[in-house]
Write a protein that binds this DNA or RNA. Structure first.
Length: 604
RNA sequence: GGGGAGUUAGUUAAGUCGGUUAUAACGCCGGCCUGUCACGCCGGAGGCCACGGGUUCGAGUCCCGUACUCCCCGCCA
């Protein structure tokens, strides 16, 4: 028999052959996806990343090859040679290559395979824990292969798009100096500098600005970022950004560049035309109607802010609402249409759900024929005027259900935002996962420059300290920081923040005022960001940029259920790698070299 | 740090009111089979019921704790 690999080179992939190839002699390499042994004939579905091809080995044609074929089992890695033959009318419509099959004339087993811990099939129910432990097997499955191939395509399209647009792909260091504020950094001890640490870059932010100051005009990078924060469905400790920075631009220029990329990706990957320009919504409107800055616009159920109404009605006969408003709290309501028909038990479950987010409860009211309220803690005491005003404000019709949250704004917004999405999924307005074919891109714009840090009692940068304030708000920097808005923007898709950026502060004088408003002394600013402050004084160009969450983009493009499904080697919610066992122990010698001492007793 | 869900053959699940030998499907092993493609037929192996305590005559089942996985809040400029 001829030797595969050295003498017989692969001629095709397993997803490639069509009836045009009938009569050709081919060599395929791959894995046994399925076998059907009929004694005198063995059918093998051979799989590689291109697809699946049926190979037949017949005893009375080549007995010695049939003998090899009989030994084949699932996931054996094999090479085969054979002739492409028409399947006539006996086509398999489920296979891309279903019109043909290969009659095997040679076969070699490269490697056998033990029983796999879970089936290598498209649809499996195996616990994710097991899949992560044997990730290399999970990645053999076609859905994950497709996802990673899409990811590779997004990488390629992005590079082409920006390169053709005159952007330079420039690199930035991962090991950087720790800068306070923002995400928690991973720290790397410096062996050569005992007691000192690098931080792993949470983003290339400062370096891409310095590229602008260095005169590179237009930069992009597909870059890994590191953040030591708790994980979520859409958050991994290391993730990839499509990072962009441009000189001599205003907000609209950045939007143009990014919309162009996004439209291209959706067109090339999904064949979907996304209309431009994308919708824009002020940050304040998003908070009021949706409770966060990443609204899912595929459905309605907007929040109604009742704070002023309650104030006008002097509490409207409801002491709890009066107290909330008096204590700087807010009151929000959401109308759930009668058609949703939630049972008492279901609403009680919703109450459990909101308590888990720090809410004290879930006040509700069922609206009757005459606008009266039942099943409501407010029903008895609320004044008729207030009740009618709430009905009018929310547009409540008989049979509708009103849900309320009141008190501390951050909790009210969070609870109502999550409740809105939760209910929409229960009501089938949006699928549990995936887009459902709706792509509601949105720019959330005009956020406040500062947010009040309730614990510290000071104003803190809502984004980073280098975002440019609106010119017309500059007079209020000192007198009323809360009403200073800025050139910051987030790109949102179906409830996910897929990008964010800003026009940067390039004026050293305004920069100094912003630091002062944040309670950061000149010395502090110098010690933390001295290099950037110096750079801004050296002819820094007006500039701005954005970073897109590449993993999230691919997750939404492919309809994946979590970020873990679009990251080849992801971490669990506790940040561990179930395959390698990372993070692991360091031995005493390593620690000594690094001048690091653990305060944790090693577990045995 | 807080709230919620889960953990039973290799995999996915069932397991009643606490009671004899813990079921099934798929996978695996052996045999038969030349047109299957969810191949079919016959036979077989496979279990520290996550871990540690407790209650009980008796625990997969009840109670407490721990670990791990997932979802959410906090956190993520």
């Amino acid at each position: 028999m001829p030797r595969f690999i050295t003498e017989l080179k692969r001629t095709h992939s397993c997803g490639q052959l069509t009836k045009d190839d009938i009569g050709k002699e081919v060599v395929l390499f791959g894995w046994v996806n399925n076998r059907r042994d009929h004694g005198g004939a063995v059918f093998i579905d051979l799989r590689d990343r291109g697809g699946v091809t049926q190979v037949v080995f017949e005893e009375d044609v080549r007995p010695e090859v049939h003998e090899v074929a009989e030994k084949l089992r699932l996931e054996y890695c094999v090479g085969i040679r054979g002739k492409v033959v028409s399947r006539g009318s006996n086509v398999n419509a489920r296979l891309q290559t279903g019109e043909i099959e290969v009659h095997g004339t040679d076969a070699e087993i490269f490697n056998r395979c033990e029983s796999t811990p879970f089936p290598i099939e498209d649809q499996i129910d195996t616990a994710e824990e097991k899949r992560l432990q044997y990730r290399y097997l999970d990645l053999r499955r076609a859905p994950l292969q497709k996802t990673l191939m899409t990811r590779a395509r997004v990488n390629h399209l992005t590079r082409t798009y920006f390169t053709e647009g005159g952007f330079l792909e420039l690199e930035t260091p991962f090991m950087v100096k720790y800068t306070p504020g923002g995400a928690r950094n991973f720290l790397v001890p410096s062996r050569l500098n005992p007691g000192k640490f690098y931080a792993l870059a949470e983003s290339p932010q400062l370096f891409k600005q310095l590229y602008m100051i260095a005169g590179f005009d237009r930069y992009f990078q597909i870059v890994r970022c590191f953040r030591d924060e708790d994980l979520r469905l859409d958050r991994q400790p290391e993730f990839t950004q499509i990072d962009v920075e441009m000189s001599f631009v205003e907000q609209n220029d950045v939007f143009d560049a990014i919309e162009g990329l996004v439209v291209k990706l959706w067109k090339e990957v999904l064949g979907v035309e996304i209309p431009r320009p994308f919708r824009r919504m002020p940050f304040d409107e998003s908070m009021a109607k949706y409770g966060n800055d990443k609204p899912d616009l595929r459905f309605g159920m907007e929040h109604v802010l009742l704070t002023d109404l309650v104030r006008q009605h002097g509490g409207g006969g409801v002491p709890l609402l009066a107290e909330a408003v008096a204590g700087n709290g807010i009151v929000k309501a959401m109308k759930v249409p009668a058609s949703a028909s939630f049972s008492r038990t279901e609403i009680d479950k919703l109450e459990e759900y909101v308590r888990g987010m720090g809410s004290k409860g879930l006040a509700r009211a069922k609206v009757g024929e005459a606008g009266e309220w039942t099943q409501s803690p407010f029903a008895k005491s609320i004044t008729p005027e207030m009740r009618l005003a709430v009905n009018a404000a929310t547009g409540a019709q008989p049979g509708d259900l009103l849900l309320f949250q009141f008190g501390k704004p951050s909790i009210v917004h969070t609870v109502m935002a999550n409740l809105r999405v939760h209910l929409a999924k229960r009501m089938g307005l949006v699928p549990e996962y995936g887009s459902g074919g709706n792509w509601n891109f949105l720019w959330v714009v005009d956020p406040p420059l500062f947010e009040f840090d309730e614990e510290a009692g000071t104003w803190a940068a809502a984004h980073h300290a280098f975002t440019r304030p609106r010119d017309q708000d500059l007079p209020f920097l000192e007198s009323d920081p809360g009403r200073v808005y800025c050139w910051r923007y987030d790109l949102v898709l179906n409830g996910f923040e897929i990008g964010g950026g800003s026009i940067r502060l390039h004026d050293p004088e305004v920069q100094a005022r912003v630091f002062r408003a944040m309670g950061i002394s000149d010395q502090d600013a110098r010690s933390k960001f001295g290099f950037l402050l110096d750079a801004l004084k050296m002819g820094a160009p007006p500039h701005g940029g954005i970073a897109l969450g590449m993993d999230r983009l691919v997750m939404l493009l492919t309809g994946a259920e979590s970020l873990r499904d679009v990251v080849a080697w992801p971490k669990t919610q506790k940040g561990t790698d179930l395959m390698t066992g990372a993070p692991g122990d360091a031995d005493a010698k390593q620690l000594r070299e690094l001048s690091v001492k653990s305060t944790v007793e090693p577990s045995k």
